[in-house]
């Protein structure tokens, strides 16, 4: 009896400790998520909402701006994530070489961008890549280009600029994961490979990459989610322009809610589109990276 009582009081104490966090999570996370799902079926402007069934989903298929944002987001994701992952891997392998001098300095330099403020670096990029900014001036001075590149005015170059910016910001972040994983690999595996006469490229593709596979999968999913939610950079550097060339889904949601005549229901629908895409892509990535055993 005494023990059961003690157990109950312990349970009460336990729940009491967890309760504040649960309440806050419930109010600020779970409730809004469920509410947004409900909202995605509402139509109407401002607070003047009514249930619309599939109306928002039908509207999606006929909304050229949404399609534009979706295509842009996919371009960013398809082009940027592989570039960044490969870069981060190469940096990590290079910086893991104990013979490299000033390793600490390089590691810090590459990691530093991801601790800078999003707004600060976006603003800086905007000024650096202006028509008469340092980047264009430097390129002209180096005779790489004859005239300034219209980074912010041309749809193609604006996309390039956004990809450059997020790659600069996030490569170091991914590199840290790879570095940590590399340092966990037993050095004698590489020594055994050297004695076995495995060439350097094959040590990378045949040993390093397979051993980093779980980390690569993790960073790919994290980066995919990050890119699908891309907002700060496009909002600050290009504001989605020129002519929606860098408009992303997140920015479109923001515009639908706060810039245009508020359309809460429809923007909730677009938000859930991101959720569905992330879920599908993550599932696909798990499927691709699954541990496949050779047929025995």
């Amino acid at each position: 009896m005494a023990q059961a009582k003690l157990g109950r009081s312990e349970q009460v104490t336990g729940w009491a400790f967890v309760a504040p966090a649960l309440v806050l999570l419930g109010i600020f996370m779970i409730y809004p998520i469920i509410w947004s799902l409900w909202m995605s079926f509402q139509v109407g402007k401002g607070m003047n909402l009514s249930f619309g069934g599939w109306a928002n989903i039908i509207r999606l298929t006929k909304d050229p701006v949404f399609i534009r944002a979706l295509v842009n987001t996919c371009i960013f994701f398809v082009v940027q994530v592989p570039i960044m992952i490969v870069l981060a891997l190469l940096f990590a392998v290079a910086l893991n070489d104990p013979k490299l001098r000033f390793r600490g300095l390089f590691r810090t330099a590459i990691f530093l961008p991801c601790v800078t403020s999003l707004i600060a670096y976006s603003t800086l990029f905007k000024s650096m890549f202006a028509t008469d900014g340092v980047v264009n001036n430097a390129l002209i001075w180096l005779h790489v280009v004859s005239g300034p590149i219209p980074w912010l005015q041309d749809p193609f170059w604006a996309k390039v600029l956004i990809i450059l910016a997020i790659t600069w910001r996030w490569t170091g972040y991914n590199m840290i994961f790879y570095l940590a994983a590399l340092q966990n690999i037993d050095r004698s595996i590489y020594e055994a490979a050297r004695i076995d006469g495995i060439p350097a490229w094959a040590r990378f593709t045949g040993i390093t990459i397979p051993m980093l596979k779980p980390v690569i999968l993790f960073t790919t999913i994290i980066s995919t989610i990050g890119t699908l939610q891309l907002f700060d950079e496009v909002n600050n550097i290009t504001i989605g322009g020129p002519s929606d060339a860098t408009l992303t889904l997140s920015l479109y949601i923001y515009n639908l809610t706060f810039k245009f005549m508020p359309s809460f229901g429809y923007s909730a629908t677009v938000s859930w589109v991101i959720v569905v895409i992330v879920a599908i892509l993550s599932f696909l990535q798990f499927l691709i990276a699954r541990d496949r055993r050779p047929a025995a």
Partner: peptide, 15 residues
């Protein structure tokens, strides 16, 4: 790899 040697490590160093 060209010394005509092969080595067995304490940690086995298997792939």
């Amino acid at each position: 790899s060209r010394r005509g040697i092969a080595m067995v490590f304490q940690s086995y160093a298997l792939y």
